[in-house]
Amino acid sequence: MIAQMLMDGLIAGSMIGLGAIGITLTYSILRFANFAHGELVSWAAYFALSVSTALGTALPGLSASLGPFSFGWSLPLGLIAAMALTGLLALFADTLLFARLRARGASTIILVMAGFGAALTLRSLLEFIFTSKPMYFTSALQIARPLFAGARATPDQLLGLGLAVALVAAVHLILTRTAAGRAMRAVSENQALAGLAGIDVAKTIRLVWLFGASLAAVAGVMAGLLVQIRPYMGHDLLLPLFAAAILGGIGSVPGAMIAGLIVGLAEAACVNFIGAEWRAAVSFFILVAILLLRPQGLFGKAGA
């Protein structure tokens, strides 16, 4: 059953990795640990659910299953809408809250606390609107197919895994090969100098929010598809996301993905050898270990 454990770990890990890329980006460029990132994940799942349900009702053809997957075209369309809407939500929060604090030169910890307040607000609003009852994108049950050495996975799970790998590559390329990516990295290192180099820092920061929120949206839809949709889904994912971002080294996109997989595998091992009830504690112990042994993370620069 070791093969199955690895498979489960990789699937959960790719989900964590996806969320952690968003956190590591916003963390390194906006320079604070955003506790509301988990809520972007949850809101995205509900956005996608609402849009895909509406689409499916209006055009029933769109909810017919796509090939081996459990969902129809309405879900990918819902995901695209969710990326846009979550981006707008993040920009809205930035304009209303974070940008004002930044303009005042607020310290990191004030921004962290603002994120905490925003998280409370956003999460409980979801609970108010949708109640805490779990929801699902589809009611279709999928059969896990045998893969190798007795390990099984559903087509949805394999799609998620593939999507995660593709997105890491895409984000990495955007950061290293495009003008917008260079601008983000420059702003991450030194905002004043970025301005002197002709970069519009305010615009770049808005871009980072959009980018981070879109990634949160993919993670949220994936978590909603593979597990379930709940107002607390993002909150519960937050600790693994932070652990992965720090383990990977803040700012490192490949690092966040690899660390996400490590966290996922560690959780799967915990479920297998210790017990499922301790799963949520795994991230904390990874976090403790990394802070004690290598606080800059596996792929981070010392002193960062």
Binding site: F32, A33, F35, S107, T108, I109, V112, F116, L239, F242, I246, L287, V288, L291, P295
Partner: peptide, 8 residues
């Protein structure tokens, strides 16, 4: 970093 305490 000052925000690591918050996360921990």
């Amino acid at each position: 970093r000052s925000d690591y305490l918050a996360i921990a």
